[in-house]
Amino acid sequence: MNWLTNFVRPKIQQLVRPREVPENLWDKCPACEHMIFHRELEKNLRVCPHCGHHMRLGLKARLELLFDGGAYKRIELPKVAEDPLKFKDLKTYQSRLKEARSKTGETDGIIVASGQINGQDVVVAAFDFSFMGGSMGMAVGEGLVAAAELSVVQDSPLLVIPASGGARMQEGILSLMQMARSTVAVERVKEHGLPYIVLLTDPTTGGVTASFAMLGDIQIAEPGALIGFAGARVIENTIREKLPEGFQSAEYLRDHGMVDMVVRRHDLKETLGRLLGLLRNRGPVGEVVTLPRRGAEADSAGRSKGAEILPPPAPDA
């Protein structure tokens, strides 16, 4: 045995050989192009610490962010017919579904859950963009209907969080029908006097935008989110005009009245909790004092002798 060849050389090579570094340790911000260490990015809720750009956040991470203590209860969604049109393009629809389910661990692109946000009961229907681009097919339509029914049964507000490229083309007209079904489901929630809030995330486009996503009592969006129906290039080719800078961004839509609020991801939970509290508890929290009659005398406490102090109304009054 050659001691130098078999023992010393491998030890030296082990010391000087370059170590393999995993490629997923760093992320590049698409806005400012800074490189961000992946742990720092996840700790900052996937918001660039340099420019504040909001990158896409995973569905389960978003639910854990919004619900108190990250705790929520999912409901099982109704089963639907798979591949009703026997659709095939470059791949069969069945194979695309199989790939998406293997990648995400979910049966389709929506999760319906109930829990509390800042102590307020709420039902949440959230889209998973990583599942075939969050496209809306029959399963997603059934999920939205189930969320609306659960909201009515539990007497809880409904929060919908879309992240979608639109209707799922592999289901044809059946996917387009979900636009009407989801709209009817939302109207049922409103008929029962329950708040309906939409949190628009990047991207929200196509048939989703053209239906339930724009019907919220309050429309909230994350900074920089792409929100629209058709793509900007399609619109420019149709109207033969150059679109304004930032067209279809959350900030542009807020400035033009289509979105009520643009809220940073770090402030979403507090903002939603405050809104839910205001919408659900509309009565005053203190005493109600009737206005004094003109010319009435005041007592030692400064109140008019004709004033009447009424107890605060019940929260559901």
Rank of each mutant, 00 (worst) to 15 (best):
A221D: 08
D260P: 07
E308H: 06
S164L: 01
L15E: 12
Y93K: 02
E40K: 07
P18D: 05
P78G: 06
L57N: 00
K103W: 11
F129V: 05
E236W: 05
L199C: 00
P284A: 11
Q14E: 14
R96N: 09
V47A: 07
L57A: 03
L57Y: 14
P312E: 07
E222W: 02
D155N: 11
H54V: 14
F212I: 08
E76M: 13
D316K: 15
F87W: 14
H192A: 13
C29E: 01
V122M: 07
D27E: 15
L66F: 10
P10L: 12
E287W: 08
P195Y: 02
I173K: 10
L45D: 10
D128K: 06
G172E: 05
A139G: 08
V21P: 09
M132R: 12
A298L: 15
Y72W: 11
R17H: 14
C51T: 06
L63F: 10
D202V: 08
A71N: 15
E42P: 02
L226W: 09
L279P: 04
G273W: 15
N237M: 15
V8P: 02
L90G: 13
I75F: 01
I197E: 09
P203K: 00
R282V: 11
I161F: 05
V198N: 10
N2G: 03
L158V: 04
Y252L: 10
G193S: 12
R303V: 01
G216A: 05
N6I: 09
L215V: 02
G286P: 02
L268W: 08
V234F: 12
F129L: 10
E308T: 14
S304G: 15
A221L: 08
P22V: 07
L85Q: 09
D299W: 07
A139T: 03
K88P: 02
T5R: 13
R17K: 12
A230D: 08
V289N: 10
V16D: 12
K103Q: 11
R293H: 07
N6L: 13
S130A: 11
S156M: 11
V153R: 14
K91C: 05
T205I: 12
L243D: 03
G193Y: 01
K43P: 01
P22L: 13
L158A: 02
G109L: 04
K269C: 13
I75H: 00
L90F: 13
L158W: 00
